[in-house]
Design a protein around this nucleic acid. Structure first.
Length: 980
RNA sequence: GCCCCCGUAGCCCAAUCGGCAGAGGCAGGCCCCUUAAAAGGGUCACAGUGUGGGUUCGAGUCCCACCGGGGGCACCA
C-alpha cells in the first residue's frame, strides 16, 4: 500500500512521536500504524468477517448461528479523486454497529461494492482514449485500499462492481424479467407476459378492436403485447440534452430545465426510447411507505414525488361539432367546484385543440376580445393557435418558471359544463401541462389562484362556489382555496349548497357517475422512467431489432451481452442549444458488434443490436441482492439465501415487508435511487424471484462532514489549512499569508481547497483515532464541521487507555488480578449498560464519552502513578467495549492481555444488575420548584419514608415554619418537590 | 408560496417518561513533570437552553406565535 509509514526514515518517525524522551511503547501514530496493518492483515487472512450463508454456492449451514443482521452502506461511485474525510462517516458508523452486533452473537453481513458505470470514466476516456474499464478498475483499487486502511469489517468476498461482466449479466437478466412482464390491474401485481398472451389466445381478454386473437397478424399481436410490457419503447416526449448528447430521466432534470450533470439546457423532444412502467406501481410505492422504518422526511419526499391525488375525471362535450367527437376530459381534485367552472384550458400540445377549433371566430368573440387578448389579433382560430404554440415552444422552462404571467388564446370553441349546461369558452394556455392529468382543465377562478389570474387577465367571469371565510374578501383575498360551505351550486337534480368540501365532492362525484359524465379518479405526478441513455459506459440492453423494426428480447442463453471495444467512446454531442438534433449513441458505430444472426424461434435471421445503454441507476437497483450470493452462476441470488437475509419477519410487525435491516446513506438519494430500487424489488417480488416486498426495511440518513473554505479579496479559494484564526476585540478574524480572507461553510472539495483525506489523518494519528474522532463529534444523523486540530483529543484518550494497560517502557501488560473496589465496579457496570444502549441506538458519541469517563476513573485509581495495575476484571470489559469504535488497538490490547484469538466475535461484557442499583439515593428537595436542600435515604425507602425524611430535614422545617405543605411530590430516585 | 428538520458554554455535542442544565472532546486559565518543549499529568472557570406567551408543583423537553439556519417541492389542476 502506498501509505505505508514504516518506510519513513527512523528519525522522522521518532520526531512524529515527540522526540528523544518518548517511551518506546507509547501509543502514537507509528505504533498505531504498525498495529493497524498487523490486524488488517490478520483479519483478511483469517476471513474474520466472512458471513456464512445457509445455502447456495457458499452454503455453510452449520456455521449459521445467531440472529442475522444485514447492514448496508449506499453504493459508492469510485471517483478518481479518492476519499475525503467526509465519505467514510457512514461506512464507519455501520462498521461500528456491525462489530458490536458481531460481538454480541449476531450473524452480520456487511459488504462494500462499487457503482462503477458512469459518466466521469467515460468522459476521461473521451479525452484521453483510455478505456473506461482501465480507469474504473484503477479507481476501485485505490478506493479499496483507502477503505481497508480504515479497518472496516467487510466480507471482502462479497464485493461486486456493476461493471463486472458477471454482475451486469444479471442486471440484463432482471431487465428481461421486467420486459417479459405486464401489470395486472385486477390482481395489482406484475405477471409473466406469457400469461397475458394466453388470456388473449383463450379469449379471456378481448383485443382492442374486438377481433379474435387468432385473426390478428403476428405483428398485430406483438404490438398489443408490447403495449403491456413493464419495459417498453415509447415515442413520447423525452428530455433531450444536446450538450451531453443523451436523453435524461425527469429526475435528472432540474426545476429550471437543465441537466443535473453539466448544467446544459434540456429540450422536450419526441424520441424513441426505452421506458420502465414505474407508474403501474405508483399506488403501492406510496402505500407501502407506511410499512417502512424510514425518516419521515424521505417518506415525505417520495410521497411528494409520486404525487398521488384523489379527484374526478369529468367530460365536457364540445358545443356545435360532430356529436360523435370526443368530449374534453379533465382531471380535477375539486369536483365540488364544478358549478364555478367558467372556462376551460387545453395544453398547447393537446391533440383535441386542432379538432375543436372552428374555421372562423364565433359571433361575439369581438366583444370579449379587448385589445386582441382572446384572438391574439389573428384572423382565424387556427392562426391564433399556431402563433401561440410557436411562442410557447420558444419559451424555455426557465422563462416559464420565472414569468408566471398568464398567457393563452381562445380556440373559438365552447364546451358544455355538465352540471349546469352552460357553454363555456375553451382556451389554449401553457399554464396547463400536457404531461399531467389529461392535459386539460376546467377553470374555477373562484377557488384556484392560477385560474383567477387567467380569468382576470382575459375578462372571464368568476363565480364563487365556496363561501370564503369572514373578512377574506375585504382583506383583498382572491381565489378562496380554504374550507367552507358550498354556494351557488345547484341544478334541478342536485344541490351542494351548504355542504362542506369533502361531502360536496362525494355528492357531485356520485351524480357525475350516475349521469355518465365522470368518475372518481386517482392521479399521480409520477411518470414512467426513461431508461435508455446514449452512452458507452453502461449496461448494453439484451435486445435486438428485427427487420420489421421491432425490438426482440434475447434469450437468457445469449447473456451476457458484452460491451464491444470501440475507438470513440463519445456520443455525438452538439451545441447545447441545438434542440433539433438527434441522439447518436457510441455503440451505433460498433459495426461488427451491431449486426447479429440469431435464431429466435423463426429460424436464423439478421438482427441489429440495441445501441442504447442502461442508466447508472440500473446496477444500484439490485446490488444489495448480489452481495448475498455474489458467486452464484445459476441465479442472481439463491432463493433460500434471499429469504434468510431479506425475508419478511412477522415477529417485527404483522405487515413486515422484509428487506435490509439497516441502510445508511445520505439524504441525496431520497427519490431517485430509493424509488427505482423499490420498483425493481417489487417487480421481482411479484414474479416470485424474491420473498421480500421492499428492499430496505430501515433507512437511516447520516449527516455530512462539512468544512470551512476561505476566499481572498479576489474571491479565489486559498488553502484552508494555512489560514490563521485570531480573536480581535472578541471577533474572529481569518488571515492567509497576512491578508484577510473570508470564511464560508459547506462542502469539502478540491476546488474549495479544503480537502482533508483519511490517509493523511491516519498517517498522523492512526486509523483508530480517526474513527473515534468521527464517531465522537456527534450522533450519526448530525452534520458537523471537520476540525483537524480536535482530532488530537481522540488520540490522547487512546494513549491514556494504552498507558493504563500497557507499560510504556517495556510494552508488557500492567494489568493486575486485584479485585476492583466497589466504586469502580459500579461505574464499570453502569458503563456496560449504557454502552449497550448507545451502540444499539447508533449514539456512538455518548458511548465514547462513557468509555472516556470510565478510563479517566481508572487513570485516577489504578493509573501509571499508582502501585496497583488496572484490575483485569475491569481492563478486559473496557477493551471489549472499545473494540467496535477502535478495533485495531482493542485487538492488540486483547492480545497483550493474553488472549490469542480475535475479539471480533465477542465476548461482549454484560452488566451485572447488582452494581446498577445503589444502596442509597440522594434526593434534592425543592420548595416550589427551587432546590433548597438534599437528603440521602436508603435506596429501598418507600415514597412515604422519603416524603417524611424530606419534611423532617432541618432547613426544610425552618422554611416551612410550621405551615402545612399544599402538596408534596416525590419522584422515585429523582427528587422531592414541596409546594407551599 | 407550500412542506420537513434544527437552534443548549467561544466551538462540536450530553441531559431516560416533563424532575438538580453537563457526560465527553477542542480551544482557554492555573499548577505539576521537564534543562527545555509538548500530541505528558492534574486542575479550574465558562451557558440557564434563539425570542415572547401558555400548560404544569416543576419545561431544554409539551402547546402557540415569531426570529434565525438548513433541506425538499414549486403553474401538478
Amino acid at each position: 500500500m502506498s501509505t505505508d509509514t514504516t518506510t519513513q526514515p527512523a528519525a522522522e518517525r521518532a520526531g512524529a512521536e515527540g522526540g528523544q524522551g518518548t517511551p518506546p511503547f507509547r501509543y502514537g501514530a507509528a505504533l498505531a500504524g504498525d498495529i493497524e496493518r498487523k490486524w488488517q492483515d490478520r483479519w483478511e487472512t483469517e476471513g474474520t468477517f466472512h458471513a456464512p450463508n445457509p445455502s447456495g454456492p457458499w452454503a455453510e449451514p452449520d456455521q449459521v448461528s445467531g440472529e442475522k443482521v444485514y447492514l448496508l452502506d449506499m453504493f459508492p461511485y469510485p471517483s478518481g479523486a479518492g476519499l475525503h474525510v467526509g465519505h467514510p462517516l457512514g461506512f464507519i458508523g455501520t462498521d461500528v454497529l456491525g462489530r458490536y452486533l458481531r460481538m454480541t452473537g449476531h450473524n452480520v453481513l456487511h459488504a462494500m461494492g462499487f457503482d462503477a458505470f458512469g459518466l466521469p470514466a467515460e468522459q476521461y476516456a473521451v479525452q484521453t482514449g483510455t478505456h473506461p474499464r482501465t480507469t474504473t478498475e484503477a479507481n476501485i483499487e485505490r478506493y479499496k485500499a483507502q477503505l481497508r486502511q480504515l479497518g472496516l469489517g467487510h466480507d471482502q468476498r462479497r464485493s461486486v462492481a456493476t461493471t463486472d461482466v458477471d454482475f451486469y449479466r444479471w442486471t440484463q437478466w432482471i431487465f428481461l424479467q421486467i420486459y417479459n412482464a405486464w401489470y395486472d390491474e385486477d390482481a395489482q401485481k406484475a405477471r409473466p407476459i406469457s400469461e397475458l398472451e394466453a388470456e388473449f389466445a383463450q379469449g379471456g381478454r378481448s383485443t382492442p378492436d374486438g377481433r379474435d386473437w387468432s385473426e390478428l397478424t403476428g405483428a398485430e399481436q406483438r404490438e398489443i403485447i408490447d403495449s403491456y410490457r413493464l419495459a417498453y419503447i415509447s415515442e413520447a416526449p423525452v428530455n433531450w440534452c444536446p450538450g451531453l448528447g443523451t436523453v435524461l430521466a425527469n429526475e435528472e432534470v432540474t426545476a429550471d430545465g437543465r441537466s443535473e450533470r453539466g448544467n446544459f439546457p434540456v429540450f422536450r423532444r419526441n424520441l424513441k426510447q426505452w421506458m420502465m412502467r414505474i407508474t403501474a406501481y405508483a399506488d403501492r410505492l406510496v402505500s407501502d411507505l407506511d410499512r417502512l422504518d424510514w425518516p419521515e422526511s424521505v417518506k415525505a419526499m417520495q410521497r411528494n414525488w409520486i404525487g398521488r391525488s384523489q379527484g374526478a375525471r369529468v367530460q365536457f362535450p364540445v358545443v356545435g361539432v360532430d356529436p360523435a367527437a370526443p368530449s374534453i376530459e379533465v382531471f380535477t381534485t375539486r369536483p365540488d367546484t364544478l358549478f364555478g367552472a367558467t372556462y376551460m384550458v387545453l395544453a398547447p400540445e393537446h391533440p383535441l385543440v386542432d379538432e375543436i377549433a372552428p374555421a372562423e371566430w364565433p359571433a361575439g368573440t369581438a366583444e370579449s376580445d379587448v385589445d386582441g387578448r382572446w384572438t391574439g389579433g389573428a384572423a382565424t382560430p387556427a392562426e391564433a393557435i399556431a402563433a401561440y404554440r410557436a411562442a410557447a415552444a420558444r419559451k424555455s422552462e426557465l422563462d416559464r418558471q420565472e414569468n408566471k404571467d398568464k398567457t393563452g388564446v381562445f380556440t373559438g370553441a365552447y364546451a358544455t359544463n355538465p352540471v349546469n349546461g352552460q357553454a363555456i369558452p375553451v382556451f389554449v394556455a401553457d399554464y396547463v401541462l400536457m404531461g399531467y392529468g389529461t392535459g386539460a382543465i376546467m377553470a374555477v377562478p373562484g377557488q384556484d389562484q392560477r385560474d383567477w389570474d387567467f380569468a382576470t387577465a382575459f375578462g372571464l367571469p368568476i363565480v364563487r362556489t365556496v363561501q370564503p371565510s369572514e373578512g377574506f374578501e375585504s382583506a383583498g383575498g382572491e381565489a378562496f382555496t380554504g374550507e367552507g360551505p358550498a354556494i351557488n351550486s345547484a341544478n334541478d337534480e342536485i344541490s351542494l349548497n351548504g355542504m362542506g368540501v369533502a361531502e360536496a365532492k362525494a355528492a357531485i362525484t356520485d351524480w357525475l357517475v350516475a349521469k355518465g359524465a365522470g368518475s372518481a379518479q386517482t392521479q399521480y405526478k409520477l411518470r414512467d422512467w426513461l431508461f435508455s441513455r446514449q452512452r458507452y459506459w453502461g449496461e448494453p440492453f439484451p435486445v435486438a431489432w428485427d427487420a420489421d423494426g421491432r425490438p426482440v428480447a434475447l434469450p437468457e442463453s445469449e447473456l451476457p451481452v458484452e460491451l464491444p471495444e470501440i475507438d470513440d467512446y463519445s456520443p455525438k454531442t452538439y451545441d447545447p442549444d441545438a434542440a433539433d438534433t438527434e441522439p447518436e449513441p457510441p455503440l451505433s458505430r460498433a459495426q461488427e458488434w451491431l449486426d447479429v444472426e440469431l435464431d429466435l424461434g423463426n429460424g436464423l435471421q439478421r438482427y441489429r443490436r440495441e445501441t442504447n445503454t442502461m442508466p447508472q441507476w440500473a446496477g444500484s437497483c439490485w446490488y444489495y441482492l448480489r452481495y448475498l450470493d455474489p458467486q452464484n452462476s445459476d441465479r442472481f441470488v439463491d432463493a433460500e439465501v434471499e429469504r434468510y437475509w431479506l425475508g419478511k419477519d412477522t415477529t417485527r410487525a404483522a405487515d413486515d415487508p422484509g428487506g435490509v435491516d439497516l441502510y445508511v446513506g445520505g439524504v441525496e438519494h431520497a427519490v431517485l435511487h430509493l424509488l427505482y430500487a423499490r420498483f425493481w424489488h417489487k417487480v421481482l417480488f411479484d414474479l416470485g424471484h424474491v420473498s421480500s416486498e421492499e428492499p430496505f426495511r430501515r433507512l437511516f440518513n447520516q449527516g455530512y462532514i462539512q468544512a470551512y473554505a476561505y476566499t481572498d479579496a479576489r474571491g479565489t479559494y486559498v488553502p484552508a489549512e494555512e489560514v490563521v484564526e485570531e480573536l480581535v476585540d472578541g471577533e474572529p478574524r481569518f488571515t492567509w499569508n497576512g491578508q484577510p480572507v473570508n470564511r464560508e461553510y459547506g462542502k469539502m472539495g478540491k476546488s474549495l481547497r479544503n480537502v482533508v483525506t483519511p490517509d493523511e489523518i491516519s498517517e498522523r494519528y492512526g486509523a483508530d483515532t480517526f474513527r473515534l474522532y468521527e464517531m465522537s463529534t456527534g450522533p450519526m444523523e448530525v452534520s458537523r464541521p471537520w476540525s483537524t486540530r480536535d482530532v488530537v483529543g481522540s488520540q490522547r484518550f487512546l494513549q491514556r487507555v494504552w498507558r493504563n494497560l500497557v507499560d510504556e517502557q517495556t510494552g508488557e501488560s500492567r494489568v493486575s488480578d486485584a479485585e476492583p473496589d466497589t466504586d469502580t465496579l459500579r461505574l464499570l457496570h453502569r458503563t456496560i449498560a449504557g454502552v449497550h444502549a448507545d451502540y444499539t441506538a447508533l449514539h456512538y458519541n455518548t458511548a465514547a464519552a462513557k468509555l472516556i469517563e470510565l478510563n479517566n476513573h481508572l487513570t485516577k485509581v489504578y493509573g501509571p502513578g499508582s502501585q496497583t495495575g488496572v484490575p483485569r476484571s475491569v481492563a478486559e470489559p473496557l477493551v471489549l467495549m472499545l473494540a467496535p469504535l477502535t478495533p485495531h488497538i482493542a485487538e492488540e490490547l486483547w492480545s497483550v492481555l493474553g488472549h490469542d484469538t480475535s475479539l471480533a466475535h465477542g465476548p461482549f461484557p454484560v452488566a451485572d444488575e447488582q452494581y446498577l442499583v445503589a444502596d442509597t439515593v440522594e434526593y434534592p428537595i425543592q420548595v416550589n420548584g427551587k432546590v433548597r436542600s438534599r437528603i440521602t435515604v436508603p435506596a429501598d425507602a418507600d415514597l412515604e419514608a422519603v416524603k417524611a425524611a424530606a419534611l423532617g430535614e432541618e432547613k426544610i422545617v425552618a422554611m416551612m415554619d410550621g405551615r402545612e405543605p399544599r402538596k408534596v411530590i416525590v419522584v422515585p430516585n429523582r427528587l422531592v418537590n414541596i409546594v407551599i
